[in-house]
Amino acid sequence: MKLALGPILYYWERETTFSFYDEIAASPVDIVYLGETVCSRRHTLRTEDWLEIADKLAAAGKEVVLSSQALIESESDLMTLRRIVSNGKFMVEANDMGAVHLLAAAKLPFVAGPHINTYNPQTLALLADLGAKRWVMPVEMSRDALVHMQAARPAGMETEVFAYGRLPLAFSARCFTARHHNLPKDDCQFRCMDYKNGLTLNTREGQPFLALNGTQTQSASVYNLIGELDAMRETGVDVARVSPQAFFTAKILKLFREVMDNRLPAQSAMQQMTKLMPAQACDGYWHGRPGIEQSYLAAAEDAA
């Protein structure tokens, strides 16, 4: 199984992002997805900067994929999309059907990202006909549903699962971080930069529930399938995706790699991760349960 690093979902300083990828170049990851997928107002890195990072990572032996923005609204969003599609070098992860349209028209191979709604074999077959070489399972899909998808998977299609990170659950035109600061989106002052792992939203009794990340809403809990890597392998999953976080991403990747290579038991990795995760773990979706639930090692934690 290959290990992938998803695109950075947060807004970090330019220098932070560059040094982050310097560290990633030396980490045991096979595939790196790059680019701004959440908000077109974020601009510390332009497309040229992402391409520069892509070249560096490719030189370090990584497979690089450029991710397109999930919510494309304006003509300038489309211009950025066209630049990414016509980059001429790297495969593109399509995160909306506008991107699929352009990639298919250009007869380019692509990855159908987690924000393409691929819920059945008929849709997967269609995407394969259009040039998809890999698909990323929707985050709310269960292992049981994945088994059905895998049974009918088109030849040559790789399957990737979002296996670690705060879950990207929803997109809006509204910026919830700006709203928190009583700022209009058009004058957001880029306050999302203050929340490097998102801004946690709690219930009125203090239960961490969601995380605000600009126009994206995430789970407060960290989806963590490190205990399910064997089950993923049995299901024929080709790639496990780790989503970047502000700290310890390289350590998380290393733990995933060690468990994948059977050099470390998943339970030990999970225990080490409790100190590395920005919030508690969840894994409900994989088990066909509400996403917020956690079953792996939950009993052990309760006992402790």
């Binding site: 919510l71 819920y119 929803a170 809006s172």
Partner: peptide, 21 residues
């Protein structure tokens, strides 16, 4: 709907059931 329809899994995150599924 505040979220883009077809791209919101908040309900299944809390309950296991969403508009999509």
């Amino acid at each position: 709907c505040v979220m883009v329809e077809g791209r919101c899994a908040l309900s299944s995150y809390a309950t296991g059931e969403s508009p999509n599924t």
